[in-house]
Nucleic acid binder design. Structure first.
Lengths: 218, 218
DNA sequence: GGCCGTCCTTGACTCAGGTCAATTACCGAG
DNA sequence: CTCGGTAATTGACCTGAGTCAAGGACGGCC
């Protein structure tokens, strides 16, 4: 898969006219990151936004004790760091490769030019609004739901309501994503398996039919 | 103060050229809400976005048990419900007047037309990005901070770091805003006063100098 | 004044979930 | 195969904060 295609499939840049798209891709750069490599740090000057091509990136904040809170796990095809296009122009989070990764780097200056295009603009707005709502939902979920429910909502949000998933995430990472600890997740999983609600073996998760029912509609 | 001025002072619509601004205000409607009145309900079809002129509006979600989670307290001069401009077109939250209020109602269709203007667009983006970051911050705070710290962050976020505040909020409302209960807030306040960190008498809050220091920088 | 409703406080109790520590399971590298 | 490191589990323990319930405090308002 070539990098232009990856950019062309993103929510953010996908609906552009070929002509506008070409304007994006003709100045983009590809950067490779080794596992654990930092793409940018919280507070850095934001000269570019990114699309993840291959691998996986985590966006996190850290407090003064060095404890980290994952804000988002970026998946291939996803645009991130677009927040620097406006406001302060500094990255509000740090970005680290969870594995060897390649990202497409697009200069912010170029994007500002592209915003002149109404089609580009509309896609761009939609993406941002979706994130906005996702975060609003997160705020609600974090303050009102227990770990079991957060897990279920995480699965639905990420993969939809199914009976069977194949996941590429470690339990540790899921624990972080739902703002809990591996220990607690482990216990919750054990309890859910006991209740016949859900099983997680290796990278395969199976969910019993009734499990989704008590989940409040979004 | 007239309603056009209020609209002209918002983050979202403030930087517009007089000509564009006129296009907004010439079709806006004013709506008055009694205390407790609902402006819209979660799931309603979003035909308009709003600016709060006078009074106070709370945005909240409710789950099936009728429990509510305040997503945001809207203050005069603030634009809200702009999320319906894109995506589903349905309100993701409910809006209720905390007191007798007046809102300026602007049709979504009109806004879509205005987005053609680059200046309008830029302001609009900035506002949304700021909200995005606010929510990202909220997610972090909710998952990592105890009630004491959430209170302090709430005060900073809303009023800045001062030694003395005059607040127009009931403790109950603050408790909701920081996702806790009035009981817990009351206990935390008692403990903080005991430690000489903070006093809250009537509508006056005084904070000791050292109190801010252990707060991780944003 | 007295009555009522709302806000606030305080106490007693409970519990979800975090922390610390000790195994155990599971690779991947040599 | 063995070794070493990470992931995952499990247990014991603790604590922050929610819940329930009972009073107070502070307005209105008649």
């Amino acid at each position: 898969m070539n990098f232009d295609d990856i950019v062309a499939r993103t929510d953010l840049l996908g609906g552009l006219s070929p002509r506008s798209l070409k304007k994006v891709t003709e100045t983009q750069r590809i950067r490779s990151l080794p596992k654990g490599g930092m793409l940018f740090l919280e507070g850095d000057d934001g000269q570019a936004i990114y699309v993840l091509a291959t691998g996986s990136i985590r966006l996190f904040r850290s407090d003064e004790d060095g404890r980290e809170a994952i804000v988002h796990l970026v998946r291939p095809g996803e645009v991130f760091a677009e927040a620097v296009l406006f406001d302060t122009g500094r990255y509000p989070v740090s970005a680290q490769a969870r594995e060897d990764s390649q990202v497409v780097e697009i200069a912010t200056a170029r994007v500002h030019r592209l915003l002149e295009d109404p089609a580009f603009r509309s896609d761009f707005f939609s993406t941002i609004m979706r994130k906005l709502r996702f975060l609003a939902q997160q705020v609600y979920v974090l303050s009102s739901c227990d770990v079991r429910e957060r897990l279920l909502r995480f699965l639905v949000g990420r993969f939809g309501k199914k009976n069977r998933y194949r996941v590429d995430l470690s339990k540790k990472e899921v624990a972080e994503a739902i703002a809990t600890t591996p220990e607690t997740l482990s216990r919750v999983l054990a309890r859910m398996e006991e209740n016949g609600e859900l099983r997680w073996e290796k990278s395969e998760i199976s969910v019993a039919d009734g499990t989704w029912e008590d989940l409040a509609e979004e």
